[in-house]
Design a protein around this nucleic acid. Structure first.
Lengths: 237, 237
DNA sequence: AAGGCTATGTTGACGGTGTCAAGATAAAGT
DNA sequence: ACTTTATCTTGACACCGTCAACATAGCCTT
């Protein structure tokens, strides 16, 4: 890799190596960053989104635990502390990724919910399957979105809350609709019911993701069982 | 604390400090370890359980994220790598703590389930509340037991699985009983139903612990709602 | 009892992490 | 043109898990 003769001082060697890395990474930036193709020397241009992209990639490929600011900085061809000019700390960066996840899921949920050509019952069932399916298909993203990493100690960013809360609210909206349509019992408070139904999906998703006493070959059956259970409950009320 | 004059070599200072710590911790060991009360110089005596105790304490007080082998070793008055003679790695130590948690919970579940003087319905409701209550009261332990830290990549120790699986199995046993008593729908496979009911409790617990759109002041209502839902479902079947 | 085996404890070292402080550079506003 | 501000840099610090090599002490065999 390096043609530099080995010196006895480690500092010099380190400097040379890092300079080489920087050059390599600048090239890879030009390739992956479809915007600018001339090598930018000092300022990156759009480091924030570059970091988020690199993070999303690493997240899906190597899991949330392998996300380090240093690696992301290296991916973006930038020094280790550069990210701090765009994110307060690691948690803030993770929050930003999760925010995109919530935004995406919110859209998906809306799309499913608003399919006028299907019966409410069919949509309800589809929603259940899609929810658990999304979690099982994107375990790392799901883990990040709903894991304690982001939410513990009220560490969630304001930005994150702004995106996540409407997503939660939508769950209540749907619950009310399903209650109205007789798919869910009408004798329960909508908020509580939303928490419980969502809790069920969340719980199933986590048991699947963590591989605790449930495996992905039974997703369909578990979803059907859950949907049946809820819809059966409505017949009594 | 130390009357030793400050020397210019850090190594000496470090040695002195660690020796002092060892003495202090030996005393505290004698207090908490009811077995031996004479100061042991080199060998700890029962480091394994001392580590587990220290871990349990740190876990409940400062959370699972603050658990480091180095701190635990220091708590036990022992050098940083000593724990490796009792646990393969950090994950193994965490597994051992979680195993105790499963064992404890298994006992609690059994006790609730086997109260002959109460109706099955009352016991079911109590079980739901106790489950969520336990999780909310011991969030860090619950997080450790059911979090991905231990289970990801099939990293769970054989010992852990040996304790956890009977715990899971018991959930199925109870489910069958409740189905038989007409508290849960009889037209569903017991395993699936166990996964779904447990998933519900698990999901509610996690939403509460992580503070996601649910807070602990509504535990009772949420548990009642969940119990109602399940029991209502049985009336149709 | 002597000697060796094994369990247990020790320091040293390595590579990894998040984060702060202080300085360098370039862009943007005056 | 000068200054301010945003961005990026290296240096440093305190942690972390873990391996390797060595020290000690208890136990077991002869």
């Amino acid at each position: 890799m390096s043609a530099v003769n080995v010196t006895d001082t480690r500092e010099e060697e380190a400097v040379v190596t890092s300079a080489t890395d920087a050059a390599v990474n600048t090239i890879s930036n030009a390739v992956s960053n479809s915007v600018s193709n001339t090598a930018q020397s000092y300022h990156h241009g759009d480091l924030r989104t570059a970091l988020l992209n690199a993070a999303a990639k690493r997240l899906s490929e190597h899991g949330v635990d392998s996300l380090s600011l240093r690696k992301l900085a290296e991916d973006a061809g930038v020094s280790r502390t550069a990210p701090y000019h765009h994110f307060k700390d690691k948690s803030a960066l993770l929050s930003a990724i999760a925010a995109k996840g919530f935004s995406d899921w919110h859209s998906t949920a809306k799309r499913i919910f608003e399919q006028e050509d299907k019966t409410p019952s069919a949509r309800f069932r589809e929603f259940v399957c899609e929810y658990v399916g999304y979690a099982a298909a994107n375990p790392e993203m799901y883990e990040l979105m709903f894991g304690r990493t982001i939410w513990q100690n009220n560490a969630a960013t304001g930005d994150l809350k702004d995106v996540a809360f409407p997503c939660f609210q939508f769950q209540v909206t749907m619950t009310k609709f399903w209650q109205h349509k007789g798919l869910l019992p009408d004798n329960q408070d909508a908020l509580r019911l939303a928490q419980v139904t969502w809790g069920t999906l969340h719980g199933i998703a986590r048991l699947l993701i963590d591989g605790i006493y449930a495996d992905s070959s039974h997703i369909q059956e578990m979803c059907d069982c859950a949907a049946d259970l809820f819809m059966q409950a409505s017949n009594k009320a």
